[in-house]
Amino acid sequence: MRDHHIAELNVARLKHDINDPRIADFVNNLNRVNAAAERTPGFVWRLKDDTGNSVAMAVANDPMVIPNLSVWQSVEALESFVFRTVHKRFYDRRSEWFEVMDRMHFVMWPVPAGHQPTLEEAWQRLDYLNTNGSSDHAFGWDHVATASLWRSARCSGSAA
């Protein structure tokens, strides 16, 4: 599948305003975690604005919902970053900063190599997953037979 990569969208709803001191540890480490992603083997691209991140980009007209959209060479490369780097330390603390969402908040899908998906495209894939369930068009970790690290991280369908 050299002519395709894997795109992923992960959205989270903040418990507090992005400038609230209770979110500071998350905000103060965004550049660190994003830099780790960009150094990870298999990383291709991530959505970012002039500040170097995407937290100010509106999702679903809700300023408390923040997106993370990126492209990876493979699911395995993404899985390794999420669960085997500094990212895992912040993933384990997600309940401090984010609300539990009532729908899936994470989706992956194949994209042609070189394609940089838009936030609108990614949101449509997430909506498709929530409406139709996992398929090759839009899927979560549970759709990938070789993905196993998410199971030990107790990843679930909610944003807990």
Rank of each mutant, 00 (worst) to 15 (best):
Q116S: 13
E96V: 14
R89Q: 15
A58T: 14
E38Y: 05
N29G: 11
W109M: 11
F139D: 00
T131W: 12
H105I: 06
L47A: 02
D136L: 10
V111Q: 01
N28F: 13
H16F: 11
D102P: 02
R22F: 06
W45Y: 07
V71S: 10
E120S: 13
N61P: 15
S70I: 00
A113S: 07
S80C: 06
P67R: 10
V100Q: 11
S95R: 09
H16P: 14
E120H: 14
K48S: 06
T85M: 01
N29V: 09
H5D: 09
V65E: 10
S135D: 02
W45Q: 10
D49I: 14
A37P: 01
V107C: 01
V107K: 00
D3P: 05
V11K: 05
T118Q: 08
T118S: 10
R93N: 13
A12K: 10
T51P: 10
D50Q: 13
R84I: 15
W109C: 06
S74H: 03
N130E: 02
R125W: 11
P117M: 07
R32S: 12
S54P: 04
L119C: 06
W45N: 11
E96D: 07
G114N: 04
M104D: 01
P21C: 09
R2Q: 15
D50Y: 15
D127C: 10
H137D: 11
H105P: 06
D127R: 04
A77D: 05
W97I: 02
R89Y: 15
H87V: 07
V71A: 07
P21Y: 00
N10P: 09
D20E: 04
V75S: 06
E38T: 04
S134R: 09
F81I: 08
Y128Q: 14
H105W: 09
R22L: 02
G42T: 03
N10L: 10
H16A: 14
R103G: 07
K88I: 08
P41F: 01
N68Q: 10
T118N: 08
H4E: 12
A60L: 12
G42E: 02
N53E: 13
D20I: 14
E120P: 09
E8H: 07
S80Y: 05
N19I: 13
A12R: 09
I23H: 01
A35P: 04
Y128P: 12
L129A: 00
